[in-house]
Protein backbone atom coordinates (compact mmCIF):
# COMPACT_ATOMS: atom_id res chain seq x y z
CA UNK A 1 0.00 0.00 0.00
CA UNK A 2 1.31 3.44 -0.87
CA UNK A 3 1.42 6.34 1.52
CA UNK A 4 -1.51 8.66 0.83
CA UNK A 5 -0.16 11.39 3.05
CA UNK A 6 3.52 11.60 3.81
CA UNK A 7 5.07 14.33 5.92
CA UNK A 8 8.86 14.55 5.68
CA UNK A 9 11.05 16.53 8.06
CA UNK A 10 8.42 19.19 8.75
CA UNK A 11 9.65 22.25 10.62
CA UNK A 12 7.30 25.02 11.69
CA UNK A 13 8.60 27.95 13.68
CA UNK A 14 7.16 31.30 14.65
CA UNK A 15 9.54 34.23 15.07
CA UNK A 16 8.36 36.27 18.07
CA UNK A 17 9.73 39.16 20.07
CA UNK A 18 11.03 36.73 22.71
CA UNK A 19 12.74 34.39 20.28
CA UNK A 20 11.88 31.73 17.73
CA UNK A 21 9.15 29.31 18.83
CA UNK A 22 9.92 25.91 17.32
CA UNK A 23 6.42 24.46 17.30
CA UNK A 24 7.24 21.50 15.05
CA UNK A 25 10.85 20.38 14.81
CA UNK A 26 11.63 17.73 12.23
CA UNK A 27 8.44 15.69 12.17
CA UNK A 28 7.94 12.85 9.70
CA UNK A 29 5.03 10.45 9.42
CA UNK A 30 2.93 8.69 6.81
CA UNK A 31 -0.63 7.50 6.56
CA UNK A 32 -1.88 4.95 4.05
CA UNK A 33 -5.11 5.42 2.14
CA UNK A 34 -8.21 4.78 4.21
CA UNK A 35 -6.28 4.35 7.45
CA UNK A 36 -6.48 6.35 10.64
CA UNK A 37 -3.50 7.99 12.30
CA UNK A 38 -3.79 9.48 15.77
CA UNK A 39 -1.40 12.24 16.81
CA UNK A 40 -1.27 12.34 20.59
CA UNK A 41 0.33 14.79 22.97
CA UNK A 42 -0.15 17.48 25.57
CA UNK A 43 -1.15 21.05 24.82
CA UNK A 44 1.76 22.78 23.13
CA UNK A 45 3.27 19.59 21.74
CA UNK A 46 2.78 20.86 18.19
CA UNK A 47 -0.02 18.54 17.14
CA UNK A 48 -2.50 21.25 16.13
CA UNK A 49 0.20 23.25 14.35
CA UNK A 50 1.08 20.09 12.40
CA UNK A 51 -2.55 19.70 11.35
CA UNK A 52 -2.79 23.32 10.28
CA UNK A 53 0.50 23.10 8.39
CA UNK A 54 -0.79 20.08 6.45
CA UNK A 55 -3.96 21.96 5.48
CA UNK A 56 -2.00 25.11 4.62
CA UNK A 57 -3.90 27.08 7.25
CA UNK A 58 -0.85 28.76 8.76
CA UNK A 59 -0.14 32.29 7.61
CA UNK A 60 3.30 32.17 6.04
CA UNK A 61 3.85 35.80 6.95
CA UNK A 62 4.05 34.72 10.57
CA UNK A 63 5.24 31.12 10.33
CA UNK A 64 8.39 29.65 8.78
CA UNK A 65 7.53 26.29 7.27
CA UNK A 66 10.03 23.90 5.72
CA UNK A 67 9.92 20.24 4.79
CA UNK A 68 7.57 18.29 2.56
CA UNK A 69 3.91 17.35 2.83
CA UNK A 70 3.02 14.88 0.07
CA UNK A 71 -0.69 14.42 -0.46
CA UNK A 72 -1.48 11.84 -3.12
CA UNK A 73 1.75 12.61 -5.00
CA UNK A 74 1.74 16.42 -4.69
CA UNK A 75 3.96 18.41 -2.34
CA UNK A 76 1.69 20.91 -0.60
CA UNK A 77 4.55 22.95 0.87
CA UNK A 78 5.96 23.63 -2.60
CA UNK A 79 2.56 24.73 -3.95
CA UNK A 80 1.29 28.29 -4.06
CA UNK A 81 -1.23 29.39 -1.43
CA UNK A 82 -3.93 29.47 -4.08
CA UNK A 83 -3.27 25.91 -5.25
CA UNK A 84 -3.45 24.65 -1.68
CA UNK A 85 -6.63 26.64 -1.11
CA UNK A 86 -8.28 24.87 -4.02
CA UNK A 87 -7.50 21.50 -2.46
CA UNK A 88 -8.70 22.63 0.95
CA UNK A 89 -12.35 21.79 1.57
CA UNK A 90 -12.26 19.61 -1.56
CA UNK A 91 -9.48 17.00 -1.37
CA UNK A 92 -8.73 17.61 2.31
CA UNK A 93 -10.92 18.93 5.08
CA UNK A 94 -10.71 19.65 8.77
CA UNK A 95 -12.91 19.47 11.85
CA UNK A 96 -12.11 21.68 14.81
CA UNK A 97 -12.23 21.37 18.54
CA UNK A 98 -14.96 23.79 19.60
CA UNK A 99 -18.18 23.46 17.64
CA UNK A 100 -19.72 26.30 19.65
CA UNK A 101 -17.41 28.86 18.06
CA UNK A 102 -16.43 27.18 14.80
CA UNK A 103 -19.63 28.03 12.93
CA UNK A 104 -20.28 31.62 11.90
CA UNK A 105 -23.00 32.91 14.25
CA UNK A 106 -24.60 35.18 11.63
CA UNK A 107 -25.27 32.68 8.84
CA UNK A 108 -27.74 29.81 8.59
CA UNK A 109 -26.06 26.41 8.74
CA UNK A 110 -27.50 25.65 5.30
CA UNK A 111 -25.81 28.72 3.87
CA UNK A 112 -22.53 27.72 5.47
CA UNK A 113 -22.79 24.21 4.03
CA UNK A 114 -23.81 25.52 0.61
CA UNK A 115 -20.86 27.88 0.65
CA UNK A 116 -18.56 24.89 1.10
CA UNK A 117 -20.11 23.21 -1.95
CA UNK A 118 -20.23 26.27 -4.18
CA UNK A 119 -16.66 27.29 -3.44
CA UNK A 120 -15.47 24.20 -5.28
CA UNK A 121 -18.31 23.26 -7.61
CA UNK A 122 -20.36 25.28 -10.04
CA UNK A 123 -23.79 24.09 -9.01
CA UNK A 124 -27.11 25.91 -8.62
CA UNK A 125 -28.22 27.12 -5.22
CA UNK A 126 -31.03 24.59 -5.31
CA UNK A 127 -28.64 21.72 -5.94
CA UNK A 128 -26.22 22.94 -3.28
CA UNK A 129 -29.10 23.13 -0.84
CA UNK A 130 -30.10 19.56 -1.61
CA UNK A 131 -26.54 18.45 -1.03
CA UNK A 132 -26.51 20.33 2.25
CA UNK A 133 -29.68 18.55 3.37
CA UNK A 134 -28.20 15.20 2.31
CA UNK A 135 -25.03 15.93 4.24
CA UNK A 136 -27.03 16.80 7.37
CA UNK A 137 -29.02 13.59 6.98
CA UNK A 138 -25.78 11.61 6.61
CA UNK A 139 -24.48 12.88 9.96
CA UNK A 140 -27.72 11.97 11.69
CA UNK A 141 -29.39 15.34 12.17
CA UNK A 142 -33.13 14.80 12.53
CA UNK A 143 -35.46 16.72 10.17
CA UNK A 144 -32.60 18.07 8.04
CA UNK A 145 -35.03 19.86 5.66
CA UNK A 146 -35.98 22.12 8.56
CA UNK A 147 -32.66 22.24 10.37
CA UNK A 148 -30.89 23.49 7.26
CA UNK A 149 -32.49 26.91 7.87
CA UNK A 150 -31.47 27.08 11.52
CA UNK A 151 -28.80 29.36 12.88
CA UNK A 152 -25.93 27.77 14.83
CA UNK A 153 -27.17 29.10 18.16
CA UNK A 154 -30.36 27.08 17.73
CA UNK A 155 -28.39 23.82 17.85
CA UNK A 156 -26.75 21.97 20.73
CA UNK A 157 -22.99 21.43 20.88
CA UNK A 158 -23.23 17.85 19.65
CA UNK A 159 -25.50 18.92 16.78
CA UNK A 160 -23.10 21.68 15.84
CA UNK A 161 -20.21 19.23 15.73
CA UNK A 162 -22.33 17.05 13.45
CA UNK A 163 -22.82 20.09 11.23
CA UNK A 164 -19.05 20.67 11.23
CA UNK A 165 -18.51 17.05 10.19
CA UNK A 166 -21.16 17.40 7.48
CA UNK A 167 -19.42 20.54 6.24
CA UNK A 168 -16.02 18.83 6.19
CA UNK A 169 -17.34 15.79 4.34
CA UNK A 170 -19.72 17.53 1.94
CA UNK A 171 -17.23 17.47 -0.95
CA UNK A 172 -16.10 13.89 -0.16
CA UNK A 173 -12.49 14.72 0.75
CA UNK A 174 -9.90 11.95 0.63
CA UNK A 175 -8.19 13.28 3.74
CA UNK A 176 -9.97 14.41 6.88
CA UNK A 177 -8.07 15.99 9.76
CA UNK A 178 -9.98 16.11 13.04
CA UNK A 179 -8.42 18.37 15.65
CA UNK A 180 -9.74 17.31 19.07
CA UNK A 181 -13.21 16.68 17.63
CA UNK A 182 -14.73 15.49 20.89
CA UNK A 183 -12.83 17.44 23.53
CA UNK A 184 -15.41 20.21 23.95
CA UNK A 185 -18.39 17.85 24.10
CA UNK A 186 -20.27 16.03 26.86
CA UNK A 187 -19.09 12.47 27.46
CA UNK A 188 -22.23 10.83 26.03
CA UNK A 189 -22.07 13.06 22.98
CA UNK A 190 -18.35 12.27 22.62
CA UNK A 191 -19.20 8.60 22.14
CA UNK A 192 -21.84 9.47 19.53
CA UNK A 193 -19.48 11.67 17.56
CA UNK A 194 -16.69 9.06 17.69
CA UNK A 195 -19.10 6.42 16.45
CA UNK A 196 -20.37 8.72 13.70
CA UNK A 197 -16.86 9.41 12.46
CA UNK A 198 -16.04 5.71 12.41
CA UNK A 199 -19.23 4.96 10.48
CA UNK A 200 -18.61 7.71 7.94
CA UNK A 201 -15.00 6.65 7.47
CA UNK A 202 -16.12 3.08 6.82
CA UNK A 203 -18.65 4.35 4.25
CA UNK A 204 -16.39 6.79 2.42
CA UNK A 205 -12.92 5.29 2.83
CA UNK A 206 -11.51 8.65 3.87
CA UNK A 207 -8.01 8.77 5.27
CA UNK A 208 -8.26 10.18 8.77
CA UNK A 209 -5.83 12.02 11.00
CA UNK A 210 -7.13 12.51 14.48
CA UNK A 211 -5.39 14.93 16.79
CA UNK A 212 -6.19 14.32 20.42
CA UNK A 213 -4.97 14.01 23.97
CA UNK A 214 -7.79 11.59 24.75
CA UNK A 215 -6.28 8.11 24.68
CA UNK A 216 -9.77 6.58 24.82
CA UNK A 217 -10.57 8.12 21.44
CA UNK A 218 -7.28 6.80 20.10
CA UNK A 219 -8.05 3.24 21.16
CA UNK A 220 -11.47 3.44 19.52
CA UNK A 221 -10.42 4.94 16.23
CA UNK A 222 -6.77 4.75 15.32
CA UNK A 223 -4.77 2.19 13.34
CA UNK A 224 -1.54 3.96 14.08
CA UNK A 225 -0.37 6.41 16.70
CA UNK A 226 2.27 9.12 16.75
CA UNK A 227 3.10 10.48 20.20
CA UNK A 228 4.39 14.05 20.07
CA UNK A 229 6.36 15.95 22.65
CA UNK A 230 7.80 19.47 22.29
CA UNK A 231 7.33 19.55 18.53
CA UNK A 232 8.76 16.14 17.68
CA UNK A 233 7.61 12.54 17.48
CA UNK A 234 8.89 10.58 20.48
CA UNK A 235 7.19 7.29 19.73
CA UNK A 236 5.21 5.96 16.79
CA UNK A 237 3.72 2.60 15.98
CA UNK A 238 0.52 0.63 15.64
CA UNK A 239 -2.19 1.26 18.22
CA UNK A 240 -1.30 -2.11 19.80
CA UNK A 241 2.37 -1.13 20.00
CA UNK A 242 1.53 2.06 21.82
CA UNK A 243 -1.03 0.53 24.19
CA UNK A 244 0.54 -2.81 24.98
CA UNK A 245 4.23 -2.29 24.25
CA UNK A 246 4.97 1.37 24.95
CA UNK A 247 8.69 2.09 25.37
CA UNK A 248 9.23 5.83 25.67
CA UNK A 249 8.84 7.11 29.28
CA UNK A 250 6.61 9.96 28.07
CA UNK A 251 4.17 7.49 26.49
CA UNK A 252 4.28 5.44 29.69
CA UNK A 253 3.43 8.59 31.65
CA UNK A 254 0.52 9.42 29.35
CA UNK A 255 -0.92 5.94 29.73
CA UNK A 256 -0.44 5.95 33.50
CA UNK A 257 -2.40 9.19 33.80
CA UNK A 258 -5.53 7.66 32.22
CA UNK A 259 -8.10 6.25 34.68
CA UNK A 260 -8.87 2.58 34.07
CA UNK A 261 -11.98 0.59 34.85
CA UNK A 262 -9.98 -2.36 36.16
CA UNK A 263 -7.78 -0.36 38.50
CA UNK A 264 -8.05 -0.24 42.25
CA UNK A 265 -10.44 2.52 43.31
CA UNK A 266 -8.13 3.70 46.07
CA UNK A 267 -5.20 4.00 43.72
CA UNK A 268 -4.35 7.55 42.67
CA UNK A 269 -3.67 8.49 39.07
CA UNK A 270 -0.04 9.16 38.25
CA UNK A 271 0.35 12.50 36.53
CA UNK A 272 3.60 13.23 34.69
CA UNK A 273 5.54 15.60 36.97
CA UNK A 274 6.48 19.07 35.69
CA UNK A 275 5.40 20.99 32.61
CA UNK A 276 6.22 20.82 28.91
CA UNK A 277 9.37 22.81 28.09
CA UNK A 278 9.41 26.27 26.54
CA UNK A 279 9.54 25.88 22.78
CA UNK A 280 11.80 28.93 22.56
CA UNK A 281 14.44 27.47 24.83
CA UNK A 282 14.50 23.68 24.65
CA UNK A 283 16.48 21.67 27.24
CA UNK A 284 19.74 20.10 25.98
CA UNK A 285 19.79 16.37 25.38
CA UNK A 286 16.46 14.60 25.29
CA UNK A 287 13.68 17.25 25.36
CA UNK A 288 11.78 15.11 27.87
CA UNK A 289 14.70 14.67 30.29
CA UNK A 290 13.63 17.29 32.91
CA UNK A 291 10.44 15.28 33.53
CA UNK A 292 11.83 11.80 32.96
CA UNK A 293 12.09 9.55 36.03
CA UNK A 294 14.34 7.07 34.24
CA UNK A 295 17.08 9.37 32.98
CA UNK A 296 19.55 8.35 35.73
CA UNK A 297 19.50 4.77 34.45
CA UNK A 298 21.29 5.80 31.26
CA UNK A 299 25.03 5.91 31.85
CA UNK A 300 27.17 8.95 31.02
CA UNK A 301 24.46 11.64 31.39
CA UNK A 302 23.50 10.99 27.77
CA UNK A 303 19.88 12.04 28.48
CA UNK A 304 20.95 15.56 29.38
CA UNK A 305 23.64 16.00 26.75
CA UNK A 306 22.75 14.04 23.62
CA UNK A 307 19.56 14.32 21.54
CA UNK A 308 18.20 10.78 20.98
CA UNK A 309 17.25 9.71 17.45
CA UNK A 310 13.91 8.22 16.47
CA UNK A 311 14.93 4.58 15.94
CA UNK A 312 13.07 1.38 15.15
CA UNK A 313 12.70 -0.93 18.13
CA UNK A 314 10.72 -3.44 16.08
CA UNK A 315 9.12 -3.33 12.62
CA UNK A 316 6.98 -0.18 12.38
CA UNK A 317 7.60 0.78 16.01
CA UNK A 318 9.86 3.83 16.38
CA UNK A 319 11.09 5.22 19.68
CA UNK A 320 13.18 8.27 20.57
CA UNK A 321 14.88 7.21 23.82
CA UNK A 322 18.35 6.41 25.19
CA UNK A 323 17.08 3.54 27.38
CA UNK A 324 18.08 0.11 26.11
CA UNK A 325 15.58 -2.66 25.44
CA UNK A 326 15.81 -4.26 28.89
CA UNK A 327 15.52 -0.90 30.65
CA UNK A 328 12.40 -0.06 28.58
CA UNK A 329 10.69 -3.28 29.63
CA UNK A 330 11.57 -2.58 33.25
CA UNK A 331 10.28 0.97 32.95
CA UNK A 332 6.99 -0.28 31.46
CA UNK A 333 6.54 -2.75 34.29
CA UNK A 334 7.38 -0.10 36.89
CA UNK A 335 4.76 2.31 35.55
CA UNK A 336 1.79 -0.08 35.34
Amino acid sequence: MSAFLEVKDLHVSFPTGDGVVRAVDGLSFRVDKGRTLAIVGESGSGKSVTAQAVLGLLNRNFADITGQVWLDGQDLIAMSDDQVRELRGEAMAMIFQDPMSSLHPFYRIGDQLMEAVRTHHKVSKQEARERAIDALKQVGIPAPERRVDDYPHQLSGGMRQRVMIAMALINSPQLLVADEPTTALDVTVQAQITELMLKLQAETGTTLIIITHDLGVVADMADEVTVMYAGRAVEMGSTDDIYYRPEMPYTLGLLASVPRLDSDLNERLDPIPGNPPSLINLPPGCVFNPRCTFKDEVPGNRCTTERPELLASSAGHLVRCHLDAAQRVAAREAST
Partner: peptide
Protein backbone atom coordinates in the same frame (compact mmCIF):
# COMPACT_ATOMS: atom_id res chain seq x y z
CA UNK B 1 -8.71 35.27 15.33
CA UNK B 2 -12.13 33.71 15.79
CA UNK B 3 -12.65 30.01 15.20
CA UNK B 4 -15.22 30.43 12.44
CA UNK B 5 -12.66 32.33 10.37
CA UNK B 6 -10.43 29.26 10.50
CA UNK B 7 -13.46 27.20 9.47
CA UNK B 8 -14.05 29.52 6.52
CA UNK B 9 -10.42 29.14 5.45
CA UNK B 10 -10.61 25.37 5.92
CA UNK B 11 -13.49 25.34 3.41
CA UNK B 12 -11.07 26.71 0.84
CA UNK B 13 -12.74 30.11 0.53
CA UNK B 14 -10.63 32.76 -1.18
CA UNK B 15 -9.12 35.13 1.35
Amino acid sequence: NDDYIRTARAKGLPE
